[in-house]
Simulated assay, not measured.
Amino acid sequence: MKIEGDISKNDIEKALKDYKISSLERDKDGTYTVTFTTYKVGENEIQLGDKKLKIDVVSTVGPDEKDIYEALSNPNNTYIETDYPHIGILATIAGVIAIITAFFMHLVDRAKDPYIIFKKGMSKVNDSNWKERISLELRRYIDNMYSTNFLGGEYNVIYPLTKEDIEFIKDMDYLKFAPNREGDYSEYKKRAFEIVERLRKEKKNSV
Rank of each mutant, 00 (worst) to 15 (best):
I93Q: 15
D127T: 12
S147R: 13
E154P: 01
E132V: 08
I134K: 11
I169S: 08
V108F: 09
Y155V: 01
A91P: 07
I169W: 11
I117P: 08
T101K: 05
L151K: 13
E137K: 11
N129A: 00
R140H: 09
G152R: 04
Y115D: 09
L90V: 10
R110C: 04
L151N: 15
M122I: 04
D171H: 11
V157W: 01
E132Y: 13
I99C: 05
Y146T: 03
E137H: 02
K120F: 09
I134T: 15
A91E: 15
E154Q: 03
M122T: 06
G95D: 12
W130D: 05
L138Y: 07
G121F: 01
R133I: 09
G95K: 08
G152W: 08
A94H: 12
N144K: 14
D127S: 14
L136P: 12
M145G: 02
A94G: 11
N126D: 15
L136E: 12
I100M: 03
I93H: 13
K163G: 05
R139N: 14
E132K: 12
R140A: 15
T101G: 00
N126R: 00
T101A: 06
L138A: 10
F118Y: 15
D165V: 00
A91M: 14
N126L: 03
I169P: 10
A98F: 12
V108G: 02
F118A: 04
G95P: 06
R133K: 15
N144I: 02
L136G: 05
I99V: 15
R140W: 03
T101W: 00
L136F: 14
K119A: 08
L138C: 07
F168R: 02
K124C: 03
P160C: 02
V96P: 04
F103Y: 09
L161I: 03
A102I: 01
T92W: 14
V108T: 14
Y115H: 11
D113C: 02
L151S: 13
K124S: 11
S128N: 06
K131P: 00
D113Q: 08
N126F: 09
H106K: 12
M145F: 01
I93F: 13
Y155C: 02
F104Q: 04
K112A: 04
K120C: 05
R133C: 10
R110F: 03
S135C: 10
V157G: 05
F104G: 00
N149G: 03
D171F: 07
N129L: 03
M105L: 13
Y146Q: 06
G152P: 07
R133G: 10
M105Q: 06
N149R: 04
R133D: 11
E137W: 01
L107D: 00
R110Q: 14
R139T: 14
K120I: 09
M145N: 08
D113N: 15
V157H: 05
K163E: 12
A91G: 04
Y159T: 10
N129V: 00
T92E: 15
D171P: 00
L138V: 06
N156F: 10
M145K: 11
P160L: 02
I134Q: 13
L90Y: 11
R139F: 05
V157K: 12
R133P: 14
R110N: 08
A98W: 08
E137C: 10
Y141S: 05
V108E: 12
V157L: 13
E137M: 14
K119F: 01
M172D: 00
T92M: 13
E167Y: 03
F150M: 04
A98N: 06
I134E: 09
K119Y: 07
D143N: 14
G95R: 13
Y159Q: 08
